[in-house]
C-alpha cells in the first residue's frame, strides 16, 4: 500500500498550532506560573507579590502536618495501586472465561469507572455515614468515617473500586491478546495453570501492568480528591488528608497561594519522580511483543 505524503514543509506545523495553543494556555503557562509563584509571598486578594526565596519550601517541609500528609499519600498510593491492580487482574481473568451472560457482567464491573468521583463519594457516604449509613446499620459499627483508622480504609476501598473498571478494561484487552498457541504448547510441556499464568499470561500482560502502574500512580495522587472531599473532608484530624487535598485547602480555603504553589510543585516532582523510577526499574523488565 502506498502511503500518501504531504510535500508542504510548513503544513505539519500549521496543523499542530491548535494543539500547541491549548497546551501553552492550559498546561505550560500555568506550570511555569506555579513554578514562579512558589518563590513568592502573595497577597490573598490582590495577588501582589513579594519575593521570598525558598521560604515556602522551607515552611512546608518543616510543617509536621504536611510531612504527615506526605507519608499518608505514599501509603495511600501504594495500597490503592497494589490492591487496584491485583483485584482488577483477578476480575479480568474471571471475565475472560466463556460463561453465559458475560457481556452483562462485564458492563456491570466496568460501570464504576463511568461515575464521577463526587458521585462515587456520595454512594460510599450513603453506605458509611454515621447518621444513617446502610452498612453502619448492618455492621452495627457506626464510626466508619469518624474514626481515623477506618476512615482511611473506606477512602481506599472507594478509590480502588472507582478505578477498577479502568484497569479491568486494559487487562481484559491484553488477556485477549495472549496467544493461544503459547498456552497450548505450555500445556503440552506439562505446565499447570498456575505456571502457565506466571510464565506466559503474566509475561504478556507486563506492558499493560506497567502502563497501569503509571496511570494508577497518577490517579492515586491526583484524582482521589473528589472522593475525600465528599466522604471525610480530609478528617478525622487529617487522617485522610492526602497531598492533593492539603493543596486544595491551602489554595482554595486558606488562600496561601505561595504555599500552594510550592506544594503543587512538590506533588508534580513526586509523581514525575515515581514514574521515572518505574521506567528505569520495572520498565526494563517489561516484555514487549
Amino acid at each position: 500500500m502506498k502511503q500518501s505524503t504531504f510535500d508542504n514543509k510548513y503544513l505539519p506545523y500549521i496543523l499542530l498550532i491548535p494543539t500547541f495553543f491549548i497546551l501553552v494556555v492550559f498546561l505550560f503557562y500555568p506550570a511555569i506560573e506555579t513554578f514562579r509563584l512558589s518563590f513568592f509571598k502573595i497577597h490573598p486578594w490582590t495577588g501582589a507579590e513579594k519575593f521570598a526565596g525558598f521560604y515556602n519550601f522551607v515552611k512546608i517541609f518543616t510543617n509536621r502536618d504536611y510531612l504527615r500528609s506526605f507519608i499518608l499519600s505514599a501509603f495511600f498510593a501504594l495500597i490503592v495501586i497494589a490492591a487496584g491492580l491485583f483485584l482488577s487482574l483477578l476480575i479480568a481473568l474471571l471475565l475472560n472465561q466463556k460463561i453465559k451472560g458475560m457481556r452483562f457482567y462485564r458492563s456491570l464491573l466496568i460501570w464504576p469507572y463511568a461515575l464521577s468521583p463526587a458521585i462515587a463519594g456520595a454512594l460510599f457516604n450513603f453506605l458509611f455515614n454515621p447518621a444513617n449509613g446502610v452498612l453502619c446499620y448492618f455492621t452495627g459499627f457506626r464510626t466508619w468515617l469518624t474514626n481515623g483508622n477506618t476512615a482511611i480504609i473506606v477512602v481506599i476501598i472507594a478509590a480502588v473500586w472507582k478505578n477498577l473498571g479502568y484497569n479491568i478494561i486494559f487487562y481484559l484487552t491484553s488477556l485477549r491478546n495472549v496467544p493461544g498457541a503459547a498456552l497450548e504448547s505450555a500445556s503440552i510441556d506439562g505446565a499447570g495453570s498456575v505456571k502457565k499464568f506466571i510464565y506466559i499470561t503474566f509475561a504478556f500482560l507486563s506492558p499493560t501492568t506497567f502502563f497501569l502502574f503509571v496511570m494508577n500512580t497518577i490517579y492515586a495522587y491526583f484524582a482521589s480528591f473528589g472522593l475525600i472531599d465528599v466522604l471525610t473532608e480530609g478528617g478525622p484530624s487529617g487522617s485522610t488528608k492526602i497531598l492533593i487535598y492539603y493543596l486544595y485547602k491551602d489554595f482554595f480555603v486558606h488562600s496561601k497561594i505561595g504555599y500552594a504553589a510550592a506544594e503543587s510543585l512538590v506533588l508534580f516532582s513526586l509523581v514525575v519522580g515515581v514514574t521515572a523510577l518505574q521506567f528505569r526499574t520495572a520498565g526494563k523488565k517489561v516484555h514487549y511483543q
Binding site: 454515621p130 447518621a131 457506626r142 471525610t232 473532608e233 478525622p236
Partner: peptide, 19 residues
C-alpha cells in the same frame, strides 16, 4: 453524643429519622 462528622446533612438526617 453521636459524632456525625462534618457537613450539614448528617445531623439533620439523624434528627429527622428519630436517631
Amino acid at each position: 453524643f453521636l459524632d456525625v462528622g462534618p457537613g450539614w446533612s448528617n445531623h439533620r438526617a439523624a434528627f429527622g429519622s428519630g436517631e
